[in-house]
Structure formats: structure tokens, C-alpha cells
Design a protein around this nucleic acid. Structure first.
Lengths: 222, 222
DNA sequence: ACTAGATTGCACTCATCAGTGCAACACTTG
DNA sequence: CAAGTGTTGCACTGATGAGTGCAATCTAGT
């Protein structure tokens, strides 16, 4: 009789779909306006759900945010696929990583996440902690890759962590941060930014046994 | 009744000093917690002033923010003193600019301003506009400097604006953004960051007729 | 001392918002 | 139909916060 219903994807309207709808609405609104600036009424109407349902599914507004960030973390964790640095030559790998970074932070939701982290993490430190838990391993992993190449004699990075920061800075400054601060978009394309970043980075850190690829590459076709 | 007791906290001179006290309190609180997270009561007690005085001096909370940002803009406008790029060799000038950038964004108030811009500029676009009005001219000015050096044949920057972004990215990524996002501080010193940024930047853009680039530069001519 | 303007405490109003209780309703399953 | 579960609307509570009116009070300038 009273059976445990697996609640498999029923109609998104009535059955267990409300929880998902709420989380999706939270992604839209929290990331767009920030946590404090979104009321439960906003959330309910954005989710197409009664306000009371929010409290049937979650114990508090904060729990909605937690669940939203959990889902977002999983998405971001796949940003740089494992093994991206294992094959190919340095320049190729760096360009791949650069494109990967710029791609996975391209959606407006990532910009919103950065904004929300900057804004609300004072009151809710666990927001910054969760954000950090996702990004920091990837930065460290990149630094390990650079250190590895240094021991192989391909690069000469005396401080791999700083070098990793530098590479990310070359990518983020013209692309991500203007968006976060709502400055008008620079007219450069992502491809050009990646090309220039790789070029400058290698120019500085590559061990010049032979200069084979440092220069003659196709300059940004745009 | 403890009613007739004057505030013994900051004692803002009783005469005209209250307005300054309020603005100073606004700088502390708004930049630390964000605009939306500070109440007029917080502001009044931080300023050592009656809540009613806020409304005697300003018409609204928003006007307090506007006045605070106005003062802040003037401070930031002096960040890179005029003429900083006119004298000395490229490497010297870049190092001076780099140190200037890192110095003027060192105070916690600047980090707070960035946070507030990211957070509240969705609701109040004029915040981002004011922030932009300060930073953008300086970026453009730096780009003009790079373009000038390119015409002189000292540098080879095909895209001076992108190059300016790159230099700033090399500085900001390891220093400013971790602070904005409340990630733990990297252990690198500001001096090291500036040195490495200048080195990498010149390694990429300097035309090879120089004498004393610290590290063996690679010729990077087109 | 006197006066004018700034300051202060206080008691409001009006609005928003998180969260709860409850009864009615819809849909699914047996 | 009946039971169970999830959803909905509504009316609350309790708290916070922006902004105002007013009378008492303080301080400077004369």
C-alpha cells in the first residue's frame, strides 16, 4: 500500500518537479541579483510555484542557496576535463586550457556566481568556501602541470603557482573582470586573448633550446 | 533619563562636522558590508550621530552613497600621478606603474569598492558608472603610453589596449582578485609580482635592442 | 543672556520580508 | 471511492528598515 515512490521524472509541473523548478529559478535569480536581493516571493513566482511550496521543499532560503551551489559546483568541476594536459605539446595544451577556462566561465551564470561570491560572502562565508573548493584544486593542478614541465626541462618556472596565476590573469583581465564589474565589453575575441596569453606566457617561461613554435603561429585571425 | 547625554564616541564637532563623520562612516560600512547590508541605524551609530541627523544632512541613504563615491573617486584619480610615464626607461616606468597600481588598490577600502561594484551595481547602475569613470581613463592612458612606445620603436604592441589589460592581469590576478573573492592570500609579495609582470611583459613586447632585461630575453621580433 | 540653526530622542507610518499554520485542492494509486 | 501525498492560497507573526514630524536640547556667534 503505502509504497516508496521513486518519484521518477514525472511531469515537471505537478509531481516532484517543483524542487527542480525552484533550484533552477534560484540559479537565475540569485546569480543575477545576489542572494540578499531576492525575496522568497520573487523565487516562487520565477519558479512558477506557490510561495508555500518553497517551505515544503526547503527549510529556509539559505538551504535553497546551498542546494543551488551544490549543483553549480558539479558543473564547474567538469570545466577542465581530466587528462587535458597529458597529451600534445606545451603550446597546444596551454591553448586548450586557455580556451577551456574562457569557455566555462563564459555563461552569465558564472559571472553571477563571481558577483555573488564577492558580494554575499561577507555575511555567508561558506559561499566563498564552496567557490574556492571548486576553483582552487584546478589552479593547483595547473601549477603542478607547470612544475612538472619544469622538471622535464620544457619550461623554466621558478614559481609555478605564481606562473599559473599569471596565465589566468592574462585570460581573465580582458574578459571576465570587465563583465563582473559591468564595464562595457572589450572588443577582443576570446581566441585572440588565448593566443596572446599563450604567446606571452611561453615567451617568458619556455626554455629556448630551439625556437620552433614560439613565434610563427597564426596571429589572431580576427 | 539618560537622554541629555551627548555622544561621547566621536563627537563630530557639533557644527558641520556631522556630514563628514557620516561620509566617513559610510566609507567604512558600505565598503565593508555592501550598500544593501548597511542600515541607517548602523550608519548613525558608526558615525556617532543621531539617526535623525542623517536625514537632516542627506535626503536619502542613496545620497549618502553618492557623496561617498564622489569623494572616493577623487582619491582614486590620484592613483597614478600624472607624468609617471614620462621619464625613465620602459622597464623602470613599468615597474613604477605596477607598484603604483598594487599600492593604490592595497587598502581594504578599494577591495570593498570592487565588491560593492560587483554586488550592487545591478540595482544601481550608476555605481558601476562611477567606478568605470575612474578606472577607464587610467587604462586608456596606459594603453596610449604603450602605443606611443610602439611608434617610437621601443615596444611592439599590435594591440595596446589588450596589452594594457594583460599587464594589469599579471598584477591583479595574484593579488587583487583573491582578496575580492575572499580566497586566502597567496604568499607572494607585491614586489615579486611586479617584477615578474614587468619581466614577462617586456619579454613579449620589447623589441630586442635593449641591454639590461634581467633575464635573458628571447628575441621576439615579427 | 539671547537667538538661530544644528542636533537629538522618540514615536510614529509604511513597506518588505522570512517563516508558519491551516484548510482546501489536485492528482495519483489502490 | 478512498487514502496519501504534494500543492496552493491566505492570513497570520515577528522582525527589520527607510523615512517623517515634532518638541526638547545643545552650541556657536552676537
Amino acid at each position: 500500500m503505502t509504497q516508496t515512490r521513486p518519484k521518477e521524472t514525472a511531469s515537471p509541473d505537478r509531481r516532484g518537479g517543483s524542487r527542480d523548478a525552484i533550484v533552477r529559478a534560484a540559479e537565475r535569480l540569485f546569480l543575477e541579483r545576489g542572494f540578499g536581493a531576492v525575496s522568497m516571493d520573487d523565487l516562487a513566482s520565477e519558479a512558477g510555484v506557490a510561495r508555500r511550496t518553497l517551505y515544503n521543499q526547503f527549510t529556509s532560503k539559505e538551504e535553497i542557496l546551498r542546494e543551488m551551489l551544490r549543483g553549480l559546483s558539479e558543473q564547474l568541476r567538469d570545466a577542465l576535463p581530466p587528462g587535458i594536459e597529458t597529451q600534445g605539446e606545451v603550446e597546444e595544451v596551454l591553448r586548450r586550457i586557455g580556451k577551456g577556462v574562457l569557455t566555462f566561465q563564459a555563461p552569465a551564470s558564472f559571472v553571477g556566481l563571481v558577483r555573488m561570491t564577492a558580494a554575499d560572502a561577507q555575511q555567508f562565508p561558506w559561499i566563498a568556501a564552496g567557490f574556492d573548493a571548486v576553483l582552487d584544486p584546478q589552479l593547483k593542478r595547473f601549477a603542478r602541470y607547470l612544475a612538472h614541465l619544469t622538471t622535464l626541462g620544457v619550461l623554466a618556472c621558478p614559481d609555478p603557482l605564481l606562473a599559473a596565476h599569471q596565465f589566468l590573469g592574462l585570460l581573465n583581465e580582458p574578459v571576465l573582470w570587465p563583465r563582473v564589474l559591468r564595464r562595457e565589453q572589450p572588443p577582443v575575441t576570446a581566441d585572440a586573448v588565448v593566443d596572446e596569453a599563450v604567446q606571452m606566457f611561453l615567451c617568458r617561461y619556455r626554455v629556448s633550446d630551439q625556437r620552433k613554435v614560439t613565434r610563427g603561429g597564426k596571429r589572431s585571425s580576427k
